[in-house]
Amino acid sequence: MEAAVHMETHRDKKGKMHPKQFALMLMIIGMVMLFAGLTSAFIVRKAEGNWFNFELPAQFVASTVAVVVSSATMILAFYHAKRDNIKITQISLAVTFLAGLSFVLFQYEGFMDLAGRGIYFSPDNGSEGGMVSGSFIIALVALHLLHLVGGLVFVAIVFIKSLLLKVHKKNTLSISMCNTYWHFVGILWMYLYLFLYFAPQL
């Protein structure tokens, strides 16, 4: 590995993608299959009947806004990193991190809301929340949350690197990978939210 252990761009001079960036894309395909499998399982189970529909917590809308904002600031961070505007990159990454953190908090609030309505992950002796639909929704949302928390750690690492002046136009690999992953978890959330929102009509 050339020098470049510390200086790697996400694309080489010919525009070819860095193998690590490519590997991340593949990893994302694997994650897409995980969620595709689970949402398919949701549809198969729902089709069997005996299914309890309920409204999603309002806090999930706030989560959606938070993730959209964080994606926008991530785009800004990446754009400016490629142009050596280090200050704006740092600020944008910090905002991305905070918006991501607020996503986590809104999700927590959402779980509390569900619990308040008697919808738990595991059955509760015949209460409405004991239905498997609650378990499915919480499992899907929590698994996504786990992926997003991984993304938050990634954003934090890139933010620290940017503070150490290690993110600039000649060293864009880490921020590019972070950018790709962060958009993926954002889009994944949008998919899950819309899927769960329209699930009662499926």
């Binding site: 994650m31 995980l34 969620f35 499998g37 689970l38 399982a41 595991s122 378990s135 499992a139």
Partner: peptide, 21 residues
Amino acid sequence: FPVLLGGGLLLMFDRLAGTSF
């Protein structure tokens, strides 16, 4: 493999978390 991972996780939840997938 990720689909089996999903299936395995749900099975794990049934065993350890009291769900009934």
